[in-house]
């Protein structure tokens, strides 16, 4: 799955042979690796801290704990009287449903904006972008009142239903940009062959959009998983808490926070995100460059 971009080229064109000079690869690897270390160092520090006793976290800056303990994990796991697995599961359910909602609703809207003609198109597109530009803090209270008036507080509905209504304009715009980059000749060919707009969307556009859909899925999952304010405002039952709300339970800004368990559970909370990313990026790289247009 590596080098799909260059290898065929090299095969077709002997002229490119010099690119195979080993020292270039080594230098490239070196740069990427060095950058990688800078990227992950702070995270390694977090992992190390999770295995340190509370008192060592700030006094012992080393990456290898002087005293190794797993107590932060055992202590953190049950700190709320409910095992953390419950919160992870809750977060997972919300994030998974949100991914589904965003992929469906945003791709539909994006297709209309990118490929179809309709009245007020420009106005609606501008309105869509404008929803991105207003800081959410001022719509927070009206929105809360709205959801409360239909008795949706203390349910997941305020967190997931908007996803099925394409409220996140980021993804619409993202998909619009990707769709506009797809050759229109493909649509026309399909249309000639008798495909209606929905057929074109489903058979041509969606398959070719796989990288963009993967991006939308990754981002939706991660952003929903990490969302703090939504669950904070809408969820009251402890059994329904999501991971970030549960993580907040280690903090006490008026007293002493439990940093050790907080780090330990934070790391466990990143783990699923990392796995989702690893899984989804497979779809990211299997774009049309390797499948569609060959």
């Amino acid at each position: 799955m590596t080098s799909t971009a260059t290898q065929p080229a090299a095969v077709h064109a002997p002229a490119l042979r010099p690119q195979r000079r080993p020292w270039r690869r080594i230098v490239l690897h070196g740069i990427v690796l060095l950058g990688g270390i800078a990227m992950v160092y702070p995270l390694l520090w977090m992992v190390a801290s999770a295995f340190k006793p509370e008192s060592d976290i700030f006094s012992d800056p080393g990456l290898l704990p002087a005293t190794f303990t797993t107590e932060n994990f055992t202590q953190g796991w049950d700190a709320l009287g409910i095992p953390f697995s419950t919160f992870f599961l809750n977060s997972f359910v919300i994030a998974a449903i949100s991914v589904l909602g965003n992929l469906l609703s945003c791709s539909l809207a994006a297709y209309a904006f990118a490929r179809l003609d309709f009245r007020f198109k420009k106005t609606l597109f501008a309105a869509m972008l404008a929803t991105l530009m207003l800081p959410f803090h001022v719509t927070l209270v009206p929105q809360y009142i709205l959801f409360q008036s239909i008795d949706w507080t203390n349910t997941y509905f305020p967190l997931v239903v908007p996803k099925f209504l394409a409220v996140d304009a980021f993804f619409i715009f993202l998909m619009v940009q990707f769709m506009r980059g797809l050759p229109r000749t493909l649509d026309d060919a399909a249309t000639v062959d008798g495909c209606g707009p929905f057929g074109v969307f489903w058979r041509i556009i969606l398959p070719l959009m796989r990288p963009a859909l993967a991006v939308a899925a990754i981002f939706t999952f991660i952003w929903t998983w990490n969302d703090f304010l939504g669950p904070l405002l809408y969820i009251s039952d402890r059994e329904l808490y999501t991971a970030p709300i549960a993580l907040n339970a280690f903090l006490d800004s008026t007293g002493a926070s439990s940093w050790g368990p907080m780090f330990a559970m934070s790391i466990l909370s990143i783990l699923p995100l990392f796995l989702v990313f690893l899984f989804a990026q497979k779809h990211l790289i299997n774009g049309i460059a390797t499948t569609g247009l060959k």
């Binding site: 992929l103 507080t153 349910t155």
Partner: peptide, 23 residues
């Protein structure tokens, strides 16, 4: 694609308290 949809639907109906009535 449909598999993901089905999985999502399944999760929804898996008795998640978060989708019960208001509080």
């Amino acid at each position: 694609f449909l598999g993901t949809a089905a999985a999502g639907a399944l999760l929804t109906t898996a008795g998640c308290a978060g989708f019960g009535g208001g509080g």
